[in-house]
Design a protein around this nucleic acid. Structure first.
Lengths: 360, 360
DNA sequence: ATGAGCGTGGAAATCCTTTTCCGTGCGCGC
DNA sequence: GCGCGCACGGAAAAGGATTTCCACGCTCAT
């Protein structure tokens, strides 16, 4: 593989000149004819600069990292897809770090990233709430800023970092209002882990909508997994069974739907279910889930654009960009129907004609 | 941040000695007391070697790449999860490259990896069949081997690389035999893209089982996406509708199930469906899919272990390790039942009692 | 007693690019 | 005509670890 000195020799210039001629945003003047000669030489030898040598000098490697809670979660998978696409289009490689929601693991990753001088780190998931974690993370953040790297958050965090966030609160309000509009009054929400700000924002949107309608919110926390969603739904059914549920993530909604089917409770005839995120593949499950579309891939792409912007001198600091979300109504939500409570319902009995009590 | 020379000064030795004392597999002798002194100094200063400087010298960076067709596909997401876990446990970062099944994109990624001297590349998906792609890829492979990197394949390819593969053929045979055992004779398969060797292996297993039972195979190709599966199923129903379908991937099976439901064809009463892979979340869809479990995460982990093995002197060359797969029977397959053909069936009519014609 | 051999550790080269610092030659103003 | 500044290009340092070569001192064999 040719190195810069080969190019310099071929073009009959010094290393310095060769380097300058090849670097478009070097401000040192180089005569046009010389530049052309060098470029021709580079072309001829099909020279490609060695990223490691360059990294050693510029103090950072052209890779950006994205840390997620779980790559297997379709939400994060989509974000990663968006981010890798945008990064590779700009000549950056993307390393993905799977924290498995464990503070230790996440910290270990960030340390490795710090050490290897990644250009930036994108946090796709929310921050964990733990004193040690918070302190250590702040240290790494300073250290990354120290060598000219940048950080971006794609989910709300305590740390004031540049952020590209989905409009969780509006989305939750939208979904809840949709349920209210269908005549439901007994609406519960299955939220995410209480330690995550994302959960809190979505709960807040739900609570706002309920309050506006003069209704009492009913929040049951879960953990953003299908199994967690199923458990929460089971608890809900065991108690004062709601006629509609706003589930704070589609991943959980999958479990909710499965649990309801297991119990012979029909969706949407007996209970309406609305999700959040619009993960891919929803059109292939039954019933097609009504949900709030979050532009996941776009969020990932926006994250790398923002990161690259911060990197070369457009530092907008802690500014947060809110990405709009959108309600997409499918089959899992329907008008409130007067019916027997599920526990007393005779299996297979068709639901009575729905009664419309539109609140809008 | 402390550098090696700080440690050397602290321990009062030269750089060379410091480096040697800190590197456990350096064969140059260092007196035990000196080594202890250096290690103490490193500890004291909490010294961490700079990966970039090290990479410049050793000609490769401690990151391994994994190229997948689509991170959002649960199959690949799982493989990535397994690989990142194993890699980070050994101090390696993992970059993921999303080829989107495009030869150009994949080639561009591999070139970047080559240039940045990644320690190794794991190909999670099969190779594309295209003259230019094949030729270019071979060039990169040689170049990677040239600087001491390694390659590993996690899906069958034309290139003879070290491989960790799922036992596709046995799996397909298992699934088909399960269907035969339930009394089905009119069994079709929905395969993957014909250009992928994975598809061909799974088709082969299916065809073998059919042949052993004296039956004629019926193969319809699709593209490993839910939409593709749905289209293929639609075509199947339009033709000589089978009573059982072996779908060569769970991702496609999702689409198949959706299409059958759309048409009011019940699973498994009217048609049995078996998938392949056992992607996570199957227990939350209805009906729970009978499938062949591929140890996806383990495959990813085995890939990095193999890669690391090849890297430091356990080169087993092109040896292929086959990972066993396992049939997991759930709800989507059932015994053949005499029934009206779906098109003439009256909706809601319960199926007749199943007739057992076990072939085993 | 001397040279071979071994255990130990240091100096310096190497990996390759970027960037600082300096020098040359030319044009222009006074 | 002299000096000043500017445009251009080169030499060399820097970045931080690894590794090659060499040297030193000691033991053991001849």
């Amino acid at each position: 593989m040719p190195v810069l000195s080969d190019v310099a020799r071929q073009a009959d210039v010094s290393l310095a000149t060769a380097s300058r001629a090849l670097d478009p945003d070097n401000d040192h003047p180089v005569h046009e004819s010389t530049r052309a000669r060098v470029q021709a030489a580079a072309q001829l030898l099909s020279y490609r600069p060695n990223p490691m040598a360059r990294a050693l000098r510029t103090r950072r490697v052209p890779t950006i990292a994205i840390v997620v809670h779980d790559v297997s979660d379709p939400y994060f998978a989509e974000v990663v897809r968006g981010a890798t696409g945008a990064a590779s289009a700009r000549g950056f490689l993307t390393v993905v770090c799977n924290s498995a929601r464990d503070p230790q693991t996440e910290l270990r990753y960030v340390e490795m990233l710090c050490l290897s001088r990644a250009s930036g780190v994108i946090f796709a998931g929310g921050g964990l709430e733990e004193a040690h974690y918070r302190r250590a993370m702040n240290g790494y953040a300073r250290s990354i800023a120290g060598y000219g790297g940048a950080l971006v958050a794609l989910a709300p965090r305590a740390e004031r970092w540049p952020s590209e966030l989905p409009d969780n609160r509006s989305g939750a309000r939208l979904a809840t209002e949709h349920l209210l509009g269908l005549g439901h009054v007994n609406i519960a929400t299955i939220g995410g882990p209480t330690t995550l700000r994302t959960s809190r924002e979505r709960e807040l949107g739900y609570a706002e909508a309920m309050k506006s309608a003069g209704l009492k919110p009913h929040i049951v926390p879960a953990d953003f997994t299908p199994a967690g969603g199923a458990r929460a739904m089971a608890a809900l059914v065991a108690g004062r069974s709601p006629t509609a549920v706003f589930v704070a993530s589609d991943t959980m909604a999958l479990g909710v739907l499965a649990e309801l089917r297991r119990r012979g409770i029909r969706v949407p005839e007996d209970v309406s279910v609305a999700g959040f995120d619009d993960i891919p593949g929803l059109e292939f499950i039954h019933p097609n889930l009504t949900t709030v579309r979050v532009p996941m891939a776009e969020l990932g792409a926006a994250g790398v654009r923002r990161l690259l912007g911060e990197l070369d001198g457009e530092p907008h600091g802690a500014r947060v960009n809110l990405h709009p979300v959108e309600l997409v109504v499918r089959e899992s939500t329907g008008p409130l129907s007067r019916r027997l409570p599920p526990s007393k319902r005779v299996d297979g009995l068709p639901a009575e004609a729905p009664v419309r009590r539109n609140h809008h």
